[in-house]
């Protein structure tokens, strides 16, 4: 149980001329569930591996609590990690896999047997204890790897895209379980993913990373509603936030000074018969099942509007769009939010 603090942490790999992780400042509270979210190649895994000690920071400091970790090997950091490819020991049974951290570190193993069985029942894998990982499904393997990670009761629990190799239904099932695990264990979780649904549904806070730089660290709803960068608006949400050049909007909308781009979420726009702030023509529609998306052309921009799935719009017709001014977000030239 420990907080994790990163101070100006950078990592540059040999043979590379850009930082994979650049000047990251991050404070993760004790018992927090922090998700590091970013597109592929953003440096999110490198950041996690720096916390784990699997990579050495080129610059900056990593603290667990008040202890500087830079020169402490991953062996002594008192952490556990779960990997995308499960990384189970194929030559050992499920039982031996789960017991491994206790046996390997020479810790007191008097209660090992009951401990392994308790964890196995918690993860619903009691019946698999004698099997080898090769005989298990992906979901079962990841449960085993969770079991192996929690048996030594680490200070910090690291997960590197643990659900990415599983299919969709298993993913949502395990999501709930990992969240539950976090509550039961009461330790710090740091979870890396590229999947925003995972991030949104599990995180206490999300750290959004792009090109090795942290853009914003906030609660999921804050991140979604008040991104501090236009890129975050376009990365989060399905579909993403509409980003429209303010010049395309004419005088109908009052913007803050310095604004060049105006953002609004598709679900915050309605098609109205009366009041209208903008008018445009429907150029296409996308049926999503629970809803549908209208692509509406306004000047040189296309605005996505989320409408109920039973509404009928034909391509080419003009529609009036309405929204509340409070849902508008303003961004400057460099993408930053204008406050």
């Amino acid at each position: 149980m420990s907080s994790v603090t990163l101070k100006k942490v950078s990592k540059r790999f040999t043979n590379s001329d850009v930082d994979a992780v650049s000047q990251v400042d991050l404070e993760i509270e004790n018992k927090e569930f922090l998700v590091i979210l970013g597109p592929s190649g953003s440096g999110k895994s490198s950041l996690l591996r720096l916390i784990a000690g699997l990579e050495e920071a080129s610059n900056g400091e990593v603290y667990f609590g008040n202890d500087l970790m830079n020169d402490i090997s991953p062996r002594e950091r008192d952490i556990s990690m779960v990997f995308q490819n499960f990384a189970l020991f194929p030559n050992m049974t499920v039982y031996e896999n789960i017991a491994f951290p206790i046996r390997a570190s020479g810790k007191d193993s008097t209660n090992l047997d009951s401990e392994v069985k308790k964890i196995a029942s918690m993860l619903q894998i009691e019946s698999l204890l004698d099997r080898k990982p090769g005989e298990l499904s992906g979901g079962e393997q990841q449960r085993v790897s969770l079991g192996r990670a929690i048996i030594k009761k680490p200070k910090v629990f690291l997960m590197d895209e643990p659900l990415s190799n599983l299919d969709a239904s298993l993913r949502s099932e395990l999501r709930t379980e990992i969240k539950k695990l976090h509550e039961e264990l009461g330790i710090t979780f740091i979870y890396v993913t590229h999947d925003q649904t995972e991030a949104m549904s599990m995180a206490d806070r999300i750290a959004l990373i792009k090109d090795g730089k942290l853009l914003q660290v906030d609660k999921p709803d804050v991140l979604y509603n008040n991104p501090n960068h236009s890129w975050i608006g376009s990365f989060l949400g399905m579909p993403a936030m509409n980003l429209v050049n303010s010049s395309d909007l004419g005088d109908s909308i009052s913007t803050k000074k310095g604004t060049t781009v105006v953002g609004i979420r598709p679900e915050n726009i309605t098609v109205s018969s009366g009041n209208s702030k903008l008018t445009g023509s429907v150029i296409s529609t996308e049926y999503l099942g629970d809803s549908q998306i209208l692509n509406v052309k306004i000047a040189n921009s296309v605005v996505k509007v989320k409408v109920p799935n039973d509404s009928k719009f034909s391509v080419g017709t003009d529609v009036n769009l309405d929204f509340s001014d409070g849902d508008l977000r303003f961004f400057s030239d460099d993408g930053k939010t204008v406050r």
Binding site: A52, L54, S73, P74, R75, E76, R77, I79, S80, M81, F83, Q84, N85, A87, L88, F89, P90, N91, F100, P101, A104, S105, K107, S145, R148, K152
Partner: peptide, 24 residues
């Protein structure tokens, strides 16, 4: 990752060599 998991479990190099690396 198999070795990284073993490292983080607190296993020594000789333990990893004997119990993980060599059998595999």
């Amino acid at each position: 990752e198999i070795f990284e998991a073993a490292f983080m479990s607190g296993a020594s190099d000789s333990y990893i060599l004997r119990k993980v690396a060599l059998p595999l």
